[in-house]
Design a protein around this nucleic acid. Sequence first.
DNA 1: TTGAAAGCGGTACCAC
DNA 2: GTGGTACCGCTTTCAA
Lengths: 355, 355
Amino acid sequence: MAEGGPQTRRSTPATLHDVAREAGVSLATASRSLNGSVRKVNEEYRERVLAAAAKLGYTPNLSAQAVARGTSTTVALLVADIADPYFSSIAAGVVGAAGDDRLIVTMAETKRDAERELELVRAMRGQRPRVMILSGSRTIGDPNAVALEAELTAYEQTGGRAVFISESDLPFRTLPLANRSGARDLAVELHGLGYRRFAALTGPETLRTTHDRVAGFAEGLASVGIRVPDDRLVRTAFTRDGGYDGMRRFIEAGLGDTQVVFALNDVMAMGAMSAMRDAGLEPGRDLAVAGFDDIPTVRDVTPRLTSVRMPLERIGEQALRLALDDEADAASARAASADVSTEVVIRESTPRVEA
Amino acid sequence: MAEGGPQTRRSTPATLHDVAREAGVSLATASRSLNGSVRKVNEEYRERVLAAAAKLGYTPNLSAQAVARGTSTTVALLVADIADPYFSSIAAGVVGAAGDDRLIVTMAETKRDAERELELVRAMRGQRPRVMILSGSRTIGDPNAVALEAELTAYEQTGGRAVFISESDLPFRTLPLANRSGARDLAVELHGLGYRRFAALTGPETLRTTHDRVAGFAEGLASVGIRVPDDRLVRTAFTRDGGYDGMRRFIEAGLGDTQVVFALNDVMAMGAMSAMRDAGLEPGRDLAVAGFDDIPTVRDVTPRLTSVRMPLERIGEQALRLALDDEADAASARAASADVSTEVVIRESTPRVEA
DNA sequence: TTGAAAGCGGTACCAC
DNA sequence: GTGGTACCGCTTTCAA
């Protein structure tokens, strides 16, 4: 391209001022016609302003509005990894619900790093978001927790609303997820199918979600008098690759007489099934597999994966509702969490055990 | 919870003013110490300001900064459906790259609706984002195209940068995706494996991506003297359920002697494989299947899915780079698109055809 | 270097 | 109802 060639004149966006002048009314009137709360503007003026705005291609400057009004229309969302179906589904719920309320959602990734998360919270506060939703699981004994609490407390004290998806131990609104009871139910159902010898592919023990799901699963089994041997609790990363790697190691170390392995989330389960195949084992036949979350793709793997359904999109929606709902008394929180309860979905990866 | 219980006093965030007062310096000095471009502030003052800011928990108000500076640090991202792995991977790329540049990304979903997309572009302009990335495929003959072009032109004229991921016909920067050549390569490779009779599960014919992939596939086959019969081009939705439904219909209508079906994207392919199984057919054995995009989960389905790899995260990154790169001469665009080229990945879903 | 002050684009209170 | 105007929080000239 030729340099210095003809170039459309670069201008600046039309301002409310421009609109008012064009319409021949005052700034105040223009503001009222375009955004004003209760309409109390002469119809004729109103129309002139609207016409002027259209003609000029005026779009209100949200930043300016935020400054003037002292409140923004932003909701900040923190996820561990947006490419992970668990988080992208939650994000879809948040984005959808936010759109309904004409709120804008900004997003950042913690990469499962507590330090980074803290920095991000700090950075996002700069946007003065109305709501901040933190969706990664908490880390037990996280040294950053106190700093995070301080940061969020300051945030709330200045008018913001922090919401955790999944329990946090921190004193903020929380959308509790039925990790524990879901895992418990799963254990019982599996027992009902005839399974007696279990293993689990778990995440870092400091991850609260890991802890809750393992605990729930153990409880469920305990209720029928079964225990998972320690050497059948394989610790690995909470990701697909973690699932693959954990299963590979487990196979190498010897499955023993294990009948079914509970992978703490679906992506891990999917990785685990791949590892089995790579080792010449057929999931569902040589070893049953169950996951957790019920992400959409578990219907499309073979065998279809038994899982614990979490209504992820709805969880995203409810988290936002919980934050926005200002009479967020216990009742509303209860309603929200009831709405996101789990359900065990038995599929082919855990066939009934023949007697 | 008791109503009207003790409640921490709700205050407003510390302002630069507060910091300046606390540090005993002027507003200007405080501003310069905290953000100022070239440092030219007495070290002692600087420290006092920093200390005051820390003490007060000061975070600059991004909106106010945007208003005062006349430029924001926002990048707006439009996707069709964030829960779809294709888009969530691209989003991950954008979010990652934006984070490196300390940019904030805001996201909205078009739900594949051109009307809605137009509205969203309009709404997002209110944020005065530095960059706007539109990642859904274009619709051929979209009546909204002219309005969209007008809106984006106005946006660019006022300093913004619009970038399309995938060709658009609209006069804006574009990160071209190798849909056509990728599909062409796939066709040739499949032919090389011995396949001779093809079918395709395609999206709406008005969807540019559909068009390009179908055209490329047809070209590739044409180069080896093969043609896909019209009645083996099944039109369906560009989603997992579309793939399922299209395959179901195709099976009902009769597969004939079809050897392999090309699903225009991986999620469709996964749906299609499930439909086959539900109909008692084994993918890869009774009928080969190939997809496109190479989303992460295709490694974990059975049989592993042959696909055309698109470096989705990198695509997201490059789209942002392309927008930000101000000497975005042809060279940079070329470099970016070279970086996002495709590669056919043959897996078990398309076994070599025995002679 | 530092500080006073004039904006930036809007909102909303206060008279008229 | 309408317009004048004092802010909102921050940046950036411009003098001192």
